[in-house]
Design a binder for these strands. Structure first.
Ligand code: FES
Ligand code: FES
Lengths: 145, 145
DNA sequence: CGATATTCCTAGTATTCCCATAGGATATTA
DNA sequence: TAATATCCTATGGGAATACTAGGAATATCG
């Protein structure tokens, strides 16, 4: 349920790279971050369509962040690569369910969505790019396998 | 990233059914909850191995909750069907990481895992079973839009 | 006992999604 | 104009998911 697709991990690594290095071509990002070059091209294009990066074509072109890394919330990155957080279809389509708001499982999934959205909104790209400043939640993560 | 598999949704519906109806056979749960009967059998067996339900074989056998619904946290259900919450491999295996600054997002994923675990631990099966009868929407495969 | 109802076990299949690759078209500039 | 880059479309392999199938083991009831 919560396995993060490679695409999203690649997008994050690429954005962190841009946040640190300013501007670079897809080929060089792929090389530095050990990502399949042609695959990364498509990902960067998707990030562009979502307004997270800007691009310049031609000989001295490349990609750069479209906004300051402080103002890019990680939820925007996830939305760019995977779309809206939606554990089950009915979370934003109450008409699929006979009881709508009274449907307890639906409320349960909405609560999960809210928890995830809340966390992803609270972390910015800058937090990941300046790892010294980033402190993760101190909740117990004791569970074994 | 957060699409919940049908298997987990089925498991939840089956458990809510048991919480409300006390005890029932796989076939009748499947019928009432509109779940593929043979598929549900395997799911219930998985829930048994995880200690969430108990079963009796033979003519008047069936499944029942192994604990009070108040003491079944939803995270146990998710773990039973999908295993440990693990956004990326390295969250509980730091030794996998031999990549220098490529691994920096690890704290970020751990924070996400904690946020999800925290929410799923805060909701019990009883919270979902409390309302009066309700209708779940159709199986994922039935959606006709 | 014997018919019946149930869980339990194993294997197979169809489909969908994910990851990656390939080949080029278009744009910019040194 | 040659080189470098983004942009576009199509496709295939592999893994996971959702289900299907058949039957073996077990318990109950008449
Ligand atoms: S609409 Fe999804 S559970 Fe009711
Ligand atoms: S591989 Fe994920 S933190 Fe290093």
């Amino acid at each position: 349920m919560f396995q993060v697709p490679a695409k999203t991990q690649y997008a994050i690594r690429a954005l962190v790279h841009l946040a640190r290095n300013g501007s670079d071509s897809a080929a060089r990002i792929a090389e530095a971050q050990k990502i399949s070059p042609k695959y990364l091209e498509g990902i960067l294009n998707q990030l562009k369509l979502s307004g997270l990066v800007a691009s310049d074509r031609g000989r001295s072109g490349g990609y750069r962040l479209a906004k300051d890394s402080e103002s890019i919330a990680m939820i925007e990155v996830v939305r760019a690569t995977e779309g809206e957080i939606r554990p089950v279809e009915c979370v934003d389509r109450a008409n699929l369910c006979a009881l709508g708001d009274l449907c307890m499982p639906r409320k349960f999934w909405i609560g999960l969505k809210d928890a995830v959205n809340s966390y992803l909104s609270s972390v910015s790209l800058a937090d990941l790019a300046e790892d010294s400043a980033f402190a993760f939640h101190a909740n117990p993560s004791d569970e074994g396998e």
